[in-house]
């Protein structure tokens, strides 16, 4: 237990928090880009055009089936080699997570739009609302209630997935944790179990409140 003290030695704690900051920053940028792109992608996905439909489908299936770590490798190592484009790990991470997140978000948006029953559209029209008015007052509020909890869940998945970036050399919370453990391997041989437990709970307390909020909204709006 006394090896946990390593956490507060020197500036270790600040460094770990800094690592968490990198994790959250990468997640936040990727989530924000995914939401913006995903809204557009989702609308594209509802179009009947067969070419767009097939392309969107291919994109979605790709990000669903290929592991995020493989995508990271493809972008980080593959782009560097093929196009002689030396990306930083952070840039590769944002590209991959946005590519993945925008696809998933797009599908959520598509699901939310198509889930509105046809009779809602019809009764809005029957009330004499214009198309814009029925979207504004009837259809979008219903779609949003379905979309928002799912989008929040996607955000927690993206935060968790950010842990992968240490495997392409980004120094985030898990990597900082390993560095602290390495530096203290003689003074505090048991530090590993404590530091990794701390990192575990840091992730937990970053994601859990967001999951709770999603669950709460889902229950409230269902």
């Amino acid at each position: 237990m006394q090896d946990l003290a390593v956490l507060f030695k020197g500036n270790n704690f600040q460094r770990l928090m800094g690592g968490l900051g990198v994790t959250l920053e990468l997640s936040l940028i990727s989530v924000a880009l995914s939401v913006v792109l995903g809204l557009a992608v989702g609308v594209l996905m509802t179009l009947k055009n067969p070419v767009i439909h097939a392309l969107m489908r291919l994109w979605l299936e790709t990000v669903r089936i290929v592991p995020q770590l493989v995508l990271l490798f493809l972008v980080y190592f593959g782009l560097a080699k093929t196009f002689n484009l030396q990306l930083s790990g952070e840039a590769a991470a944002v590209i991959v997570f946005t590519f993945w997140g925008a696809g998933e978000m797009g599908d959520l948006v598509r699901g939310a739009i198509t889930s509105i029953p046809a009779h809602q559209r019809e009764s809005a029209a029957a009330l004499g609302l214009t198309k814009a008015q029925s979207w504004r007052y009837v259809l979008l509020p219903q779609a949003a209630r379905r979309l928002i909890p799912q989008a929040i869940n996607l955000a927690t998945r993206m935060i968790k997935t950010t842990s992968l970036v240490m495997l392409i050399g980004v120094v985030e919370v898990l990597k900082v944790g390993s560095q602290i453990i390495d530096a203290a391997r003689y003074d505090a041989p048991q530090a590993a179990v404590w530091i990794y437990a701390v990192v575990f709970f840091l992730y937990f307390f970053a994601c859990w409140p967001i999951s709770l909020a999603a669950g709460w909204l889902e229950k409230k709006w269902s």
């Binding site: 968790k160 997935t161 495997l167 990794y196 437990a197 990192v199 575990f200 992730y203 937990f204 999951s211």
Partner: peptide, 23 residues
């Protein structure tokens, strides 16, 4: 369920593989 769903597998594995042997 809450713990497992809100933490990454990589961190869980580091704890199991690098952490636990130390105790």
């Amino acid at each position: 369920i809450e713990l497992a769903r809100n933490t990454p597998l990589l961190v869980q594995l580091f704890f199991l593989y690098f952490g636990l042997p130390k105790v």
